[in-house]
Design a protein around this nucleic acid. Sequence first.
DNA 1: CGTAAATATACCTATATCGTTATATAACTG
DNA 2: CAGTTATATAACGATATAGGTATATTTACG
Lengths: 107, 107
Amino acid sequence: MDTFNALAEPNRRRLLEAIRQEPCTVNMLVTRSDLSQPAVSKHLKYLREAKLVVVKPDGQKRWYSLNPNPLKEIEEFLEPYRQLSLNRLDALEQQDSSAIQKLTQIN
Amino acid sequence: MDTFNALAEPNRRRLLEAIRQEPCTVNMLVTRSDLSQPAVSKHLKYLREAKLVVVKPDGQKRWYSLNPNPLKEIEEFLEPYRQLSLNRLDALEQQDSSAIQKLTQIN
DNA sequence: CGTAAATATACCTATATCGTTATATAACTG
DNA sequence: CAGTTATATAACGATATAGGTATATTTACG
């Protein structure tokens, strides 16, 4: 499971959001999601494979915390696209709001 | 097909890269990839669903060009993660290279 | 008009993955 | 030790999708 695929699943993004806010045990994530415990464990397995989380065992509990480093790959992919939409829209916003309508209704 | 899933497929990312550089017809993309024509057409269908590309028919040709707007969703997702790794590593780089080793070997 | 070119779609097989239930594996607790 | 808690894994069915080949559809051209 690579970074892109790990982020492609909405439940996995939500789990990662929770872990980003603070390290979590599996049970904490089960409580905060509407997923079963095995489902959470499986998603965590994929997040581990993608190295987006690291685990620290503590007795029977496992503390999952974020490793944001792999996200750089996504950032690097997005980099060449940044100049395009965002700046282009920003520039338009300063002059012609009808042109923005035209552009944004594509999306 | 949502934005995240559209980007999860490596061939699709490559097609998008090509389209980003200049608008392309299907045949151009077939030539520049190692995919069959139907495979390219299918990936383009998903990119269209995700609204990452727009098509302009021109005779029998279809010109595919980039619509970067949906990428904002990815940017917004990444936003809260930006402060974490990148800045943290940048800060470390300026003082202690062994600490960087420890951090980066997680990844 | 008949053929070729450009693209899309249908159909098939293989593989991945989602979620669930049941079960295994440790580690605590009394 | 017995039972419970925390987590992981196995096994299963359902669904999605990747790729290929064959074919349909539309447009161009002589």
